[in-house]
Design a protein around this nucleic acid. Structure first.
Lengths: 221, 221
DNA sequence: GCAAAAGTGTTACTTTTACACCCATGC
DNA sequence: GCATGGGTGTAAAAGTAACACTTTTGC
C-alpha cells in the first residue's frame, strides 16, 4: 500500500523577463501556511505520469504541458512523519496574461502564485533543493535541446526568445550572435506578422517549424 | 510502510574492449531463474543511497563506486504483484581480471555475470528498458563530463581510454584527435611508467590529476 | 524629433575534423 | 625482419565570440 508516494512539480513559466516558478500555499499540516511546490499523493491505481498530469491540471488548468522526470527523493528525514518518497518532475508552460492569475481547484492548498526563481520565499520540506536541481537541469538542457520554446507562445519574437535564454542562463547574450545561431538551426519559420501595440518598431514574429525541429533534435532526450 | 520500494543498479564495467553490465540470476519468484539487474528492497530505516551502496557491495564486493541516480519507475504493470516502485541507479566500476568473477553474497540470487551491453539475455521486469536508459545517459554524459575514467584502473594508456569512449559511443574515433583533446584538458598526468607484458611497443601510462580534474569539471553534475 | 527597440556583417579566434607515416618492441 | 600497436602534425572547415551603427515606429 502506497500512502507515502507523492509527486512534486516544478512548473516553470516566463513572464516580464523573469523565469518564474509556481508555488502553492499549503492548507494542511505539516508546513501549514508555508509555500511549497504543487504536489500530492499518487493514487494506488494511478500511473505516476497520470498523477503528474492531474497535478499540473489542478494547478494550472492546462493539459499537454511539457514535462520530464527530475529525480526521486526518499530521505528518511525529509518529512516529519517519516519517509515520504517523492518523485519530482519539472514542467515548462506558456505563461501569458490570462494564466498569470491561478486559482487552485483543490482544498489542500489555499492559493497559488508565481515567484521569480531568484526571489523565493522559504519553502516546505526540501522543495528549495528540488527547485535548484531543476534549474541546473534546465540550464544544462537548453545547451543541447531547445526546450526554451515550451515557455513561449506559439508566435514570438527573437528578442523574446533571447530573453528566455538569458533568464535561464542568468547572463546576457550577444544579440547578433544569438539570432544568427537560432536562424541557422533552420527550424524557425519566419512569419509575415509583426508585434502589435508597441510604441517602437514592431518586431517580426516567428514560430517553430515542428517538423524540422524534431528532425534536428529527435535523438535528444 | 514501504514494502514496495526497491533499488535497481545498472553496474557498468569495461573489459576486453566491451562495455559490460552486471546481471544476476534470480532465485525468487516472480521471474525465478531469469537474469535481472542487481537490486533489492530498501529497508524502512535505511537511506536510499545506503541501500544502493549495500546492493553494490553485495554484488561486487566493492565500496566507493561511482554512482548516480537515473530514474524512478513506478508503472502499475511492471510487477505482477502490483506497483513496485523502483529507483534505478547507474554505477561505473573498474573491472579488472580479479573482479570479473563475481560471487554474490545473498540468497535471493544464484549467480552474477557480466554481459556485453549489446548481447543481453532476456531480462526480468522492465530491466531492459532501464539498461537502455542508462546507456543513453552514459552516452550523453561522456560528452560533457569525463566519467570514462571511472571505468579504468588508476593507471591506463591513452588507447585504453579511447577504447572506453568508443565502446560507450558505439563508434570509432580518430586516434590523433582523441589524444590531442584529452591531453589538452590538462588533467592527465603523464607517468614515466609503461605497459608491461605486451609483445609490441609498450604504451605510456597516465593517471588522472584529480585536483585539476575537479577544477575543470566541478560545475557539472 | 526623440525615445525605444529592431535589425544587420565582418573579423579574429577557437574547436573540430580529416588524414598517413615512422617508431619501438617482442618474438 | 616482421608483426603489432604506439606515437606524432598540419591544413581545412566549422563554430563561437567580439563588436557598433542604421532603421522603423509611436508618440
Amino acid at each position: 500500500m502506497f500512502t507515502n508516494f507523492t509527486i512534486d512539480c516544478v512548473i516553470f513559466g516566463f513572464h516580464d523577463g523573469y523565469l518564474k516558478v509556481l508555488l502553492t500555499e499549503r492548507n494542511e499540516y505539516p508546513f501549514k501556511d508555508w509555500w511549497a511546490l504543487p504536489g500530492f499523493f499518487v493514487n494506488n491505481d494511478e500511473e505516476m505520469e497520470d498523477a503528474v498530469k492531474r497535478i499540473l491540471y489542478e494547478n494550472t488548468g492546462l493539459k499537454d504541458i511539457y514535462m520530464e522526470q527530475l529525480a526521486a527523493l526518499a530521505g528518511l528525514k525529509r518529512h516529519p512523519q517519516g519517509r515520504i518518497l517523492t518523485v519530482a518532475y519539472f514542467a515548462l508552460m506558456q505563461l501569458d496574461h490570462a494564466k498569470i492569475k491561478v486559482k487552485p481547484v483543490t482544498s489542500y492548498m489555499r492559493q497559488a502564485n508565481w515567484f521569480s526563481v531568484h526571489e523565493l520565499p522559504d519553502l516546505a520540506f526540501d522543495h528549495k533543493q528540488i527547485i535548484e536541481l531543476s534549474l541546473e537541469k534546465l540550464k544544462r538542457k537548453i545547451g543541447y535541446s531547445p526546450v526554451a520554446f515550451e515557455l513561449l507562445p506559439e508566435k514570438f519574437t527573437l528578442t523574446q526568445l533571447q530573453l528566455v535564454y538569458e533568464a535561464i542562463l542568468g547572463k546576457k547574450l550577444d544579440k547578433r550572435n544569438f539570432r544568427k545561431k537560432m536562424l541557422n538551426y533552420g527550424f524557425l519559420k519566419e512569419l509575415s506578422e509583426f508585434q502589435k501595440g508597441v510604441s517602437y518598431r514592431a518586431a517580426r514574429l516567428y514560430k517553430l517549424d515542428k517538423r524540422k525541429f524534431h528532425k534536428a533534435f529527435s535523438h535528444e532526450d
